[in-house]
Computed example of a mutant assay.
Amino acid sequence: MITQPPSAAALRPPGLEAEPFGDSALMLRIADNDAEARRTGARRLRDILLNVRPYGMLNLVAGAESLLVEFDCLSVSHGQLAQTIRLAVANLGLDDTGGGAGAREFILPMVVSAEFSPDLPVVAEELGLSQDATLAALTSSVLTINLLAAAMAPMMAGVNFPGQVSRCAEPRTDVAPGSVMVAGTSAIIQPFPGPSGWKVIGRTPLTICDIHENPPTSYQPGDRVRFEVIAESRWTELKGQFLRPAHQQEGGRHGSDA
């Protein structure tokens, strides 16, 4: 028997908006007017579903403020899956728990120089800060990876900037790998050479994505990231090392010695 997918209104658990996305997916969003609450809730929702593993769920695709749940439409319907998610949320709650089970911390060393930080003066001026204060705002922040963007680039929210950073008026066509970039109050790292409209304020000597590693990245959505400015003289020492969680880094912290 062929039935029409239920309406979005019929699939709306408390605190959530659930909308059918084709025949075999649900788009979930947190019903809140605050952007940070939506981002935090989406991360928490991902953790809940990875823990509960609802019947029929096949895959999760994380967005900055949303979560796409792909499922086997021969095993479960939109409405049935939405009801399961509603029960899981009611039982476990959407309040941020400071990172899901298994969330890890990463320390990203970055070098700041005229070559590696072409947009730092512009970003500082836009924020009404000195360049040192702009970097201090970044390095004092604990960022959370919201999603993996193109080429497995970690998109992170939570930079303690006093305002929003605009994107470049003309995107660059070739940004070097390892470039640390900002836009709004978010940051992202360029894994491979390619175009970007985000503003470049530093570069890490570490390799953050390596197809020869299994898996090719050691981070995932929900992990925490902190940046440390290091001296340019340490570039050769760290260049090409694969990014690993802080507790696995040789000698622990890289050391903020710029």
Rank of each mutant, 00 (worst) to 15 (best):
63 G>T: 05
140 S>V: 01
104 R>I: 07
21 F>Q: 11
145 I>C: 04
150 A>L: 12
50 L>R: 15
66 S>I: 08
55 Y>I: 05
64 A>Y: 14
115 E>S: 08
56 G>Q: 03
55 Y>W: 13
148 L>Y: 08
73 C>N: 15
30 I>A: 05
84 T>P: 01
79 G>Q: 13
37 A>W: 08
27 M>I: 11
34 D>K: 08
107 I>A: 09
148 L>I: 04
35 A>Q: 12
104 R>P: 02
133 A>Q: 14
74 L>P: 00
64 A>V: 13
127 L>A: 05
147 L>W: 03
121 P>H: 08
44 R>F: 01
22 G>R: 03
89 V>W: 09
39 R>N: 06
97 T>D: 14
110 M>I: 10
109 P>D: 10
100 G>S: 08
115 E>W: 09
101 A>P: 09
87 L>A: 12
93 G>S: 04
50 L>A: 02
58 L>N: 01
97 T>I: 15
66 S>T: 13
106 F>P: 00
139 T>G: 02
129 L>Q: 09
84 T>Y: 02
34 D>E: 13
148 L>P: 00
75 S>M: 13
73 C>E: 15
38 R>A: 03
136 A>F: 06
79 G>V: 04
140 S>Q: 13
142 V>G: 02
135 L>Y: 07
145 I>G: 02
65 E>N: 06
79 G>N: 02
37 A>E: 14
99 G>C: 09
49 L>D: 00
79 G>R: 05
92 L>K: 12
54 P>N: 05
77 S>C: 06
114 A>H: 11
142 V>K: 11
87 L>E: 14
49 L>W: 03
23 D>T: 12
123 V>P: 02
125 E>S: 14
36 E>L: 14
69 V>M: 00
80 Q>D: 14
128 G>R: 04
122 V>W: 12
147 L>Y: 07
82 A>C: 02
44 R>V: 01
52 V>K: 03
41 G>D: 07
95 D>R: 15
72 D>A: 10
76 V>Y: 03
128 G>C: 05
147 L>N: 11
121 P>M: 08
59 N>C: 09
89 V>N: 07
133 A>R: 15
110 M>E: 02
125 E>V: 05
134 T>P: 07
88 A>W: 07
32 D>I: 03
48 I>D: 00
79 G>I: 06
116 F>M: 11
34 D>T: 06
43 R>D: 12
119 D>R: 10
130 S>Q: 08
66 S>L: 05
115 E>A: 13
88 A>P: 04
118 P>Q: 08
49 L>S: 02
37 A>S: 13
128 G>P: 00
42 A>N: 07
150 A>I: 13
79 G>P: 01
138 L>T: 01
55 Y>D: 04
142 V>P: 00
67 L>F: 02
103 A>V: 01
24 S>T: 10
103 A>T: 05
132 D>V: 11
102 G>V: 08
87 L>V: 12
92 L>I: 14
123 V>S: 05
86 R>D: 15
42 A>F: 04
141 S>I: 10
34 D>Q: 12
106 F>H: 00
51 N>G: 14
54 P>H: 06
148 L>C: 07
78 H>P: 04
38 R>M: 06
65 E>T: 09
